[in-house]
Structures are given as structure tokens and as C-alpha cells.
């Protein structure tokens, strides 16, 4: 942030008038670089490396606080909509690829480890290890983005887009994720669909949903295992878009609005992080960091942990809904 300065304002030791009456040295005992021409990475308005590092550290913590609050608006919107429309979230989560999400979680966790390790390398002036750890961090971040790219591509392909663009190509009960978890319900939804299509019998579905009503025709009363998952996902029941046949919950697209908004914003943060790490990798390769001056690595690692942490929350909130 402010670790180096342009030549125009390079500190000139001569500007400090020698002052016998001023007791400044007493307050900075032990820092022999003080007052004798700052080091190469000490900005003119700081007296010591320690002061510069502390300022940067407080600065980055405050910045992370603003980041948390920035994301909090979205988490808040998530909470409100999940509270109001739980069925939308149950419905939509079947469409997400939990394996890919889990892989990405692991990838980011590893990158957080290497980022933290890089701080230690910088402090111990282990130049090669530092560059290596930064490289691994960048590689993990890129892997994350590649996986995310394929996930997005899949969603686009399947019509899982926010707002009026939301036209899913598959019904939720046709998905493997749903079938695997609720085979009986999937079968039952299929059966109801056929019934509605062949007979156009509105009452059949209506009767199937309402457990208190007498069963009409040759239709059998559904079991809990058949009905419950469909009701919870808004495929049938009061939240469903269509009352005559199994369908999807009203405003299911809002989930994908939130999904793309949150993961997209997170992705932008990952990209920004890649940029920062590349820049730091180049500087590390030049051997600019050492025990006196390792602030930028430390701050960037903190930022990176936050990016990781946001994902740690996003993964269960979006992918692991029950």
C-alpha cells in the first residue's frame, strides 16, 4: 500500500533538523534505522519498519472488515429469501454439483495453507520457498476459477439463469441427485406427470397432494417418502408454480440470482487475489522481502484467507441444503 514512495518525495534526512531539545530518540530506542535515511521500503512518513508494518496491518484488517460488510448484504438477502421461500432453496440445490464444490473447497484450503506458509518464508527470507508457495497459491486459485468456469458453463447450458432467463431444461425429479436421494418420490412425480398428461385430470394431482381428501379412481394414496421431498422442493403443493401437475416452485430463479451474484462476486475477489499474488511473486523473485519487510505478503495472505472464508460459508449455504 504505502511501502515505497516515488522519488519526488524520497525522504531527505536533512529535513529533520537536529534537535537537542526533542526527545524523540528515547521513544524509538533500538531502531537504529531511525533518522538515518530510511530503508529502501520504508515510506517517508513512518519512523520505523515496525510502525509501517503496524499501520499496514491495521489497514488491512479494516479493509477486510469492509469486505465482510460488503458480502453481508448478500448473506442478508440470502437469509431473508431462504426464510421466506425455503422450497426454492431445496429445489435449486439439486442442480448444483456438490463434487465440484467440494473440490473447490479443498483447493482453496490448500491455497490458504500455502499463503500462510509464504508469510513465514518471507519472514525467514527463504526466497525460493516463498516463490514456490506463491506459485502454488496462484495455481490453486486458477484451478478454482477453471472449476467454477465449468460449473457456470453447465448452468448456462441447462438454462439455470437468473430472472426471466430462467428456463431449466430438466425437471428436478429427473436429476440424478434427486433420484439417488429420493427414488420413490422421483418415481411418483413421474407417475403424476404422466397422469396429468394422459388424462388431463386436474383432480388427480390435487388429490394426491392433499392427504385428507378421499382417493379418487384407481389412484393410491402416496406414502410419506413419495410425497415429502416433492412438497419440500415445491414441486407440488402450495408453493408450486403449477397446480395441475408436478412443476417447480414459484420464483425459483431467485436462487440462481443469489447463486450467481454471490459466487460471481467471490470469483471477482479470487481474480483480484491472483493479480496481487502474481505481482508479489515477481517482487519475491527479486528478493524484496525479508524479516524487516514482509508486510505485503502478510496483508495479501490475510486477504486470501478472507476470500477462502467466504467460500467456506458459500459452499454449505448453496450446495449442502437439506
Amino acid at each position: 500500500m504505502s511501502e515505497s514512495i516515488s522519488p519526488a518525495i524520497e525522504p531527505k534526512p536533512g529535513h529533520r533538523v537536529p534537535a537537542p531539545a526533542v526527545h524523540e530518540d528515547a521513544d524509538h530506542g533500538g531502531h537504529d534505522e531511525h533518522g538515518h535515511g530510511a530503508g529502501p521500503h520504508l515510506a517517508h512518513h513512518f519512523d520505523t519498519y515496525q510502525q509501517q508494518f503496524d499501520a499496514g496491518k491495521l489497514g488491512i484488517w479494516l479493509f477486510l472488515l469492509t469486505e465482510v460488510l460488503f458480502f453481508s448484504g448478500l448473506f442478508c438477502a440470502y437469509t431473508v429469501y431462504r426464510g421466506m421461500h425455503p422450497e426454492v432453496f431445496v429445489y435449486a440445490h439439486y442442480f448444483l454439483n456438490t463434487t465440484m464444490g467440494a473440490i473447490n473447497t479443498c483447493v482453496l484450503l490448500v491455497s490458504s495453507l500455502t499463503a500462510a506458509w509464504a508469510v513465514r518464508n518471507a519472514q525467514l527470507a527463504q526466497r525460493k520457498l516463498l516463490v514456490l508457495n506463491i506459485a502454488i497459491t496462484i495455481a490453486c486459485a486458477c484451478t478454482f476459477m477453471v472449476v467454477k468456469f465449468f460449473e457456470y458453463q453447465h448452468k448456462f447450458h441447462d438454462g439455470l439463469l437468473p430472472g426471466p432467463a430462467f428456463h431449466p431444461t430438466e425437471q428436478v425429479w429427473e436429476l440424478d441427485a434427486f433420484k439417488k436421494k429420493h427414488p420413490e418420490a422421483a418415481e411418483y412425480a413421474e407417475k403424476l406427470t404422466q397422469l396429468a398428461e394422459h388424462k388431463g385430470d386436474v383432480s388427480a394431482v390435487a388429490g394426491a397432494i392433499d392427504l385428507t381428501r378421499p382417493v379418487t379412481g384407481k389412484f393410491e394414496r402416496p406414502t410419506e417418502a413419495q410425497l415429502e421431498p416433492l412438497l419440500k422442493a415445491g414441486v407440488i403443493g402450495p408453493a408450486a408454480e403449477d397446480t395441475t401437475r408436478p412443476s417447480k416452485p414459484r420464483n425459483a430463479h431467485v436462487f440462481f440470482s443469489i447463486y450467481f451474484f454471490m459466487t460471481g462476486l467471490h470469483g471477482i475477489h479470487v481474480l483480484a487475489g491472483i493479480g496481487v499474488w502474481v505481482w508479489l511473486g515477481i517482487r519475491a523473485n527479486k528478493g524484496q522481502f525479508g524479516p524487516k519487510y514482509f508486510g505485503p505478503i502478510d496483508y495479501s495472505a490475510l486477504y486470501w484467507h478472507l476470500v477462502d472464508l467466504v467460500w467456506i460459508y458459500l459452499f454449505p449455504l448453496l450446495y449442502l441444503i437439506h
Binding site: 460488503f70 437468473p162 430463479h253 440470482s257
Partner: peptide, 26 residues
């Protein structure tokens, strides 16, 4: 930061109709 994300959501709502604030879209 909260007004930042709010205005961003409003802008996206206006351009992509994501339905977070528009009652017509839930």
C-alpha cells in the same frame, strides 16, 4: 460497504431482473 452492495444489487436488478427487490419477480 453495505450501500455499495445494495446499489450493486439494484443495478443488477435493473439490468438483469434478478428479482431480489422487484415484487413482480418475487
Amino acid at each position: 460497504p453495505v450501500i455499495g452492495i445494495t446499489l450493486l444489487m439494484m443495478i443488477v436488478e435493473r439490468t438483469l431482473h434478478i428479482g431480489i427487490f422487484d415484487p413482480m419477480l418475487g
